[in-house]
């Protein structure tokens, strides 16, 4: 089982779009996939028409495995399950803080699912919290959407700094350009310079597209209703690129 996190310190960069479409692409590639919606906003959960759950308990002595299994919902697409977001995730950091080995709780939890799934995609909330550190320690790849803007690239640098300061393996960080508008001069310039500064950038870039916004109307992955649009093709290419990185292509 490989764990892929869709993460950024910054909000509104396309994390949930990545999670939803990447999960769907993995499932289409024949991988038994679980999408874990860690964001209390529950956007990924909403996109799959699944109801948020209150059932997944955050206990003081560790995260509950049985509660986790009970909370999992099969999506409309066989081979892709969803662990829905829960409003209780707002208290995730507080709950984790009270646990022993508080930085590895998510890893322990994911290990319990190793026999059920080939791939797990974590849709993370923005920020740099204890939950984020759990994500860093649990993930095989940390996929960071970066809009080619100054602020977005600054948050990528912050993530690298955090890894360096906390003895975390920076090799798991794989940024990629998201919501790219090729007509924007700044996008164009930054896409030419940032990969030199951060060589781990993935080759695939996801363009800005109206279809991505329509996911909210269709409440399904972009590939299901507009499979030929540039963004859908980019997510498919991205899924192949990250699977190849982890030897699952």
């Amino acid at each position: 089982m490989k764990i892929f996190a869709s993460y950024s310190i910054k909000g509104g960069v396309g994390k949930t779009s990545l999670s939803v479409n990447l999960s769907y692409a993995f499932r289409c590639a024949g991988l038994q996939t679980l999408l874990v919606d860690l964001d209390p906003q529950g956007a990924a959960t909403f996109y799959f028409r699944v109801s948020s759950t209150e059932k997944f308990p955050l206990k003081g002595d560790g995260l509950s495995v049985s509660g986790l299994r009970e909370a999992i919902r099969e999506s409309d697409y066989s081979g892709l399950d969803i662990l829905p977001a829960s409003p209780s995730y707002r208290k995730f950091d507080i709950a984790l803080d009270g646990m022993r080995k508080s930085r590895k709780q998510l890893r322990f939890l994911m290990d319990e699912l190793a026999s059920d799934y080939d791939a797990v995609v974590l849709d993370c909330p923005p920020g740099l919290t204890l939950l984020s550190e759990n994500v860093f320690r649990a993930s095989d790849l940390l996929l960071v959407p970066v809009i080619p803007t100054v602020l977005s690239s600054r948050t990528l640098a912050q993530a690298y700094e955090f890894f360096a300061g906390h003895d975390l393996p920076a090799g798991v960080i794989r940024p990629f350009f998201s919501m790219v508008q090729s007509s924007h001069r700044m996008h164009h310039d930054l896409m030419a310079t940032l990969p030199a500064e951060f060589p781990a950038f993935l080759k695939t870039a996801v363009p800005h597209a109206a279809s991505v916004e329509k996911m909210g109307l269709h409440r399904s992955p972009i590939q299901t209703f507009d499979p030929d649009c540039p963004a859908a093709r980019a997510y498919a290419a991205l899924s192949l690129e990250v699977l190849a990185l982890r030897g699952q292509s």
């Binding site: 009970e70 909370a71 999992i72 919902r73 099969e74 399950d81």
Partner: peptide
């Protein structure tokens, strides 16, 4: 025959 195909979690 009827072949039920329940979905996980439902």
């Amino acid at each position: 025959v009827l072949v039920p195909r329940p979905l996980r979690g439902y």
